[in-house]
């Protein structure tokens, strides 16, 4: 066991504190300003909830929020189903070209979203698929799929094939084995993958931005439009709600999926 001298470990703790302050301070300030009376973020601070009340009457933002939630839920369902099926296939079977297929999962993550987004815009426009919520859903599922497959595969790596063989030797059909043995064992991975998919979709801005139309838009796109028109405290209010919502969501994910912590 190496023990760093007390002053070094104290310095380390102080440093982590600084990094956390850098990461969280702007968010805390934004949240505070969403409760401040002055629309120009003037101090001294005077508490109010009027921006949240205004938010409740902003139909554009509310519609966009509903769209975002619907797309995120659909993305979660589709990406989790397709991703889990693909992970099972990659886990169970060996075949020529498997590595190439696995490598082909990465373009949605590795290519800048600006390029994926504009490419989708061109293709959907050119083929008549068009823009709008259905196009956004098409894009979001593709972006979320690799995350689901990575997370579910990580869980499958801890699952023993012997269990499937045992079930099969006891007379279970392939589907029975999958439903009664494999899926329950990897359930935490599937839940975590699904929540990742939800977060990817709910936070996605760039791809949605290129595929949205004026009537069919998502919350981040609507916020971007509002920011470019000019800052208003309503944006702070809705942003604060989003931040609290997504962070709570990821806290739930962390119950199912350890982000590289001690095993």
């Amino acid at each position: 066991m190496i023990r760093a001298p007390a002053f070094l470990s104290g310095l380390g703790r102080f440093y982590i504190g600084l990094v956390l302050a850098f990461l969280y301070l702007p968010l805390v300030i934004m949240a505070a300003m969403s409760f401040n009376v002055s629309p120009f973020y003037q101090l001294p601070f005077e508490g109010t909830t009027e921006w949240y009340v205004a938010l409740a009457q902003n139909d554009g933002l509310i519609d966009a929020t509903i769209n975002s939630l619907e797309i995120a839920v659909l993305t979660t369902i589709i990406a989790t189903a397709l991703g889990t099926a693909a992970s099972l296939a990659l886990f169970r079977y060996d075949f020529a070209g498997k590595r190439i297929l696995q490598a082909l999962l990465f373009p949605p993550i590795a290519i800048p979203w600006l390029i994926s987004g504009t490419a989708m815009l061109i293709f959907f426009f050119g083929t008549g698929i068009g823009r709008g919520l259905h196009a956004i859903l098409l894009g979001h599922v593709a972006l979320a799929l690799p995350y689901v497959i990575i997370v579910v595969s990580a869980r499958l790596a801890t699952f023993s094939k012997d269990l499937e063989d045992a079930a099969a030797s006891l007379g279970a059909t392939g589907w029975q084995t999958t439903r009664k043995v494999t899926l329950p064992c990897i359930a935490p991975g599937i839940v975590a993958g699904g929540l990742f998919a939800f977060a990817v979709s709910f936070d996605q801005f760039v791809v949605s931005y290129f595929l949205a139309t004026p009537g069919q838009t998502t919350l981040p796109v609507e916020i971007y439009a509002a920011i470019r028109k000019g800052f208003t405290p309503e944006i702070n209010a809705v942003s604060t709600i989003i931040i609290v919502f997504s962070m709570s969501l990821m806290l739930v994910v962390s119950r199912f999926f350890r982000f590289g912590g001690d095993q």
Binding site: L101, I111, A119
Partner: peptide, 29 residues
């Protein structure tokens, strides 16, 4: 070969989706 035949039904939906939403758009670009 057998493995690919068995894996295909499970893999196809995911890769079909990626083709439609990523690979074809990139080619179109």
């Amino acid at each position: 070969q057998n493995g690919l035949r068995k894996a295909l039904p499970l893999l196809l939906p995911a890769y079909a989706w990626l083709t439609l939403a990523i690979f074809l758009p990139l080619s179109a670009m």
